[in-house]
Each structure stands twice: as C-alpha cells, then as structure tokens.
Design a protein around this nucleic acid. Sequence first.
RNA 1: GUCCCCGUCGUCUAGCGGUCCAGGACUCCGCCCUUUCACGGCGGCAACACGGGUUCGAGUCCCGUCGGGGACGCCA
Length: 471
Amino acid sequence: MTVRTRFAPSPTGYLHIGGARTALFSWLQARHCGGQFVLRIEDTDRERSTEPAVQAILDGMRWLGLDWDEGPFYQTQRFDRYREVIEQLLQSGHAYRCYCSREELDAMRSAQQARGEKSRYDGRCRERSEPRPGVEPVLRFRMPRTGTTAVEDRVRGRVNFANDELDDLIIARSDGSPTYNLTVVVDDMDMGITDVIRGDDHLNNTPKQINIFNALGAKVPAFAHLPMILGPDGAKLSKRHGAVGVMQYREEGFLPGALVNYLVRLGWAHGDQELFSRAEMIEMFDIADVNHSASAINTGKLEWLNQHYVKQADTESLAAELAWQLARLDIAASPDPGKLKLVVAAQRERVKTLAEMAENSRFFFRRPTDYEPKAARKNLKREAEPLLAAVRCELAGLQPWQAEAIHAAVVAVAERASVKLGKVAQPVRVAVCGGAVSPPIDATLAILGREETLARIDRARKWIASQVESA
RNA sequence: GUCCCCGUCGUCUAGCGGUCCAGGACUCCGCCCUUUCACGGCGGCAACACGGGUUCGAGUCCCGUCGGGGACGCCA
C-alpha cells in the first residue's frame, strides 16, 4: 500500500516553527516511502480562519521547499460530505442529539472536578428521545463506555486509554456545522491517509478519533505524535519567545535549506550527523527514530548551520537574496549585477546571515556619511595621513585594478614606511568603509573601483586634517 | 483535580544490558593562524533527575518519587 501523509494546519496565523517541523516530518515520511503528501487546510472555525493566514502557510511551505502532491483541500468546501457522514452516524445509532445548555454543562464539569473526576460529558442525553422545545441540539458521538482503546503510536509505542475516560464529543454544533474531531476523521478516511503525523497535543484526541473510524467501518491509519518544540528558555513557545512565522526567518537572513536542516535535527537524529542534504534526509529519515521528549529551539545552532549553508550556496541565488536584503535597507541593488556577485564572494565566509551580509555591505553601494567614532579615533589619526597619501599615490596609476596588484601596492607602502601591514590597511579600511570591518582590503578596493576608492581616501584625508585643526 | 506523555552536558543529540570513569554538534573559554571581521586548526569546561529493584553487569529493563509538558470547549 502506498504511504499517504498529510499536513493539516488551521489557518489562524502564520506557519510557525512547530508547524513547519510537523510539515517537514510528514513530507519526509511521504518522500522516504515514495508516497504522497497531502495539504489540507482545516478552516472549519470560520471565526478565526483567515485568507492571509492561508497564504502565509502556503508561502512558508513553498519557501521551505515542502512540495505537496495533492491539495490544498479546504474543509469549508466539504461540508456536504460531513453532513452526509453525520447523518450516517445518526442512522447507525453512533450519534445522538444533545439538548444540554452551556450552563448545564458548566455545572456538570465543575461538579465532576469537585468530586476529583476528569471533567467530561456524562451522556445524560444519550437515551433522550424527546426534543427540548426551542433548543437546537448538538450532535454527540456515542463513545464506548467499557474497555480500552489502544493507540499504536509509531513514536510512543502503545498508549492505552480507558474508554470511560473518553467523552461523547460533539461532532456537529447546533448550527449543524461539523467539528474538528469529526472532520479530521472523515478527511483522513476519504483522502486515504495512511500515516497521521502531528503534534503531541493531539495524542489525547486519538483514541476518540479511532472510535469514530471504527464506527464508520474505516481502516484506522497509523499514528505518530511528535514531541513539542519549546522556546529558547525551555518554556512553551510564545509570541515573545521564538513563535514567529517561518517567513520571518527569511527576513532575518536565513536560508531555507539551513532552517530545514535545523528543523530535521530537532527531535530526530541519524547518529552524529549534523549536516543533511535533502536527498540524505529523505533517504535516512525514519519516523521510528523520532525522539520522545520536547526540544528547545536554539538560534545559535541555526546560525551556525546558516553560515555553513551560506558558504555552500551558489553565488547566483545568494546575490538575489542579498539584493532583497539590501532593498530592505533601502539600498537599491547595484545597477551592475556583477558587482552583487563580487560582494557575495567577498562576504560569504564572514557572515552568519544574509541580513548581516547586507548590513556589512552597505558601504559597497553607498559612500559612508561618517566614520564610526571608535574606528576613526584609532585609525584616522594624524600619523595615518601620510600613509593614506602614499596609498592614494600608488593606487592612482595602478594597472591592472585587481586585488593582487592592490595588495602589492599596499604592502609596498607599508614596507617603505617600515610599519606593519595593519598600520596601512586599517586606515584605508576605515576611509573606504566607514568602519573597522570589511573583507580583505585588496578585495574590497577591487570591488569598489579606482575612482570611488580614491575619492573616499581623499575625503578621509580631509577629515583628518579638519580634526587636527579643531584639536 | 483527572487522564496521557516526557526526563543524558546550558542547548540539539548518540546510546537500543557489557565495547560508556558516556560520544558528536552548537555555545563558552584558552592557544595557533591573521591587514579588520570572519573562516580554519588544536585544546578545554560541561550530563545519565532521585530512590528502590531485576541482573554477574543498568544511561539502557521494572516500580516509586520528584520535576516538566499536554489534554479535559458548540477551538483546531
């Protein structure tokens, strides 16, 4: 039988890191088994579901490269089907009408808690045949009262639930609309899902759903419940602690490959291996190897991975991403696309993220308006002026304008002045970059061009002179 | 409260009864390299929650305690 998995988010917000990991593992399971991956949007809660959220989920999936074979299916478009199944359940006696008011239910629950019981619907309408005038009933599923329901979980093993712990859940609201536990079952059944992979928080729903599958005479799929993902502090993921949409990771300069690699190692491992290509993770992934315990997200490790991926990525796509990052800094990309690639080549080994690359590359596209005070104080001193002058002189007629020749010129100035290379390179660096950090000075000047380099050196010399005057 | 799940370095993890005075990775700290920032190289710190069993032998199996999490909705 071919494996079919699904990712079934409810569109009430962006695709966050936990959802992304669930989607990844489902996708991996399908790809590993040569099966299909289905995307389903669980939007039955019309109050909270939004179209932008659907878009954000789709965008996130695509950005991560998690392609789906079928869907997206929308539950709101399947209401006729749910009604049909609800009717069927009613006919077969697996469902019944409940006329209890919310007040009545609340009272029942608090009484149960007071008695030290688990709060659950006690089935008081189970045998009721008379409608209550003026009350639109909800429909409840008749759970077995005795025995146990075993969940054979691919990551947890067997988990047993006493049937009397399960309650007669509502499958249709008083307005007739279906609820979650019914729609998942109907969809998983209709869509031929063989492997349900989802978050830990659904483990408790599973025995209820199994009973619905049974009532419908459907084959029960295999389940795998993934451990939660926690915030960096080990606490539950919240808006304040890392619960951001995956697209925000792009904004922060992360590559999708790095995020995916990071995510796959959260709750799963293959020996000591840290780096996985897509092909490798597909080949090596085994749902049975998934961990049992929750894991905390850790930006440091993601950054390390990102750095690795930035070093590996092809220049072309990094250049495009850098242009995007520069645009966010209000810097229009260079009219010369070749320059972008040169900048990428010069910076790729020295940054963790593309946002950082863009930030550190501003000076390639804009003449610095002022100097970093600390860097200037240290490097643009009076003694530096003659050195800058000498470098300017060497550079003015240098042929060809290439890193190698520039390097030789700078070295020559240092040797002639009997100073260490840094004494010359640093002032030049601050002069052209505005700060003390840049790629090697020869490569930097090569990219900047002769004209711009000389102009910036001149400007720095003037600045030194003005400082001396005012001193 | 009730039910369910979980518990190895700060973090991600390897470990599936002996090969573990517990291995790798990130972080951190030294040293080397170095024109800045990085990269890279070398070295270091750091953990089996606790208590009982089972066994010749337990991080690995069982029980309990403690700690953490999840679920208990006309949300999904």
